[in-house]
């Protein structure tokens, strides 16, 4: 092990709080500033911090690039899935009012629809940001 004790311990203490803060931003987005984009970036920032302190090799063990790529694609699928779900329930594409029964309160469906698509945005942004960081940091430099 190297001698960077303060950095390693500090990262280990802070990382879970960064992740929790990202989730807070995600789910508090209905009531205050925040939402999927910001939460995704903050979620990714925790992994970037980990990679900076522990090295890219260890970060790849924690979060393989493939998982990041799949996350990036999965978010779009979740988003489209919510849209198609409301379509199959009898409404228009992305009309969340139809997510529940037509007699049901339409605002209920709207609320869950927004939570669903925000989740999709979170997953995509998180995956894309981590993948971008890996792409740039994992590149080997050829001297020219």
């Amino acid at each position: 092990m190297d001698d960077r004790v303060i950095l390693r311990i500090g990262t280990k203490i802070l990382s879970p709080f960064i992740l929790i803060f990202a989730l807070y931003v995600q789910f508090h987005g209905d009531y205050g500033p925040g939402g999927g984009f910001q939460a995704g970036v903050i979620f990714a920032a925790a992994f970037v911090l980990y990679a900076l302190v522990f090295g890219l090799g260890n970060a790849i063990k924690v979060m393989p690039p493939k998982v990041a790529y799949i996350c990036g694609a999965m978010g779009v699928v979740i988003y489209l899935g919510v849209g198609y779900l409301s379509m199959f329930r009898g409404g228009e594409f992305l009309n969340y009012s139809y997510l529940f029964d037509p007699e049901h309160d339409p605002t209920h469906g709207q609320h869950y629809g927004i939570i669903g698509i925000e989740l999709g945005v979170l997953v995509t942004v998180f995956g894309v940001m981590v993948a971008l960081f890996y792409a740039f940091a994992g590149r080997r430099r050829i001297d020219t």
């Binding site: 303060i6 950095l7 500090g10 203490i13 802070l14 709080f17």
Partner: peptide
């Protein structure tokens, strides 16, 4: 959090 992050960042 400031008490944690500030010294770590300086370090």
């Amino acid at each position: 959090f400031l008490l944690f992050t500030s010294p770590i960042a300086s370090h």
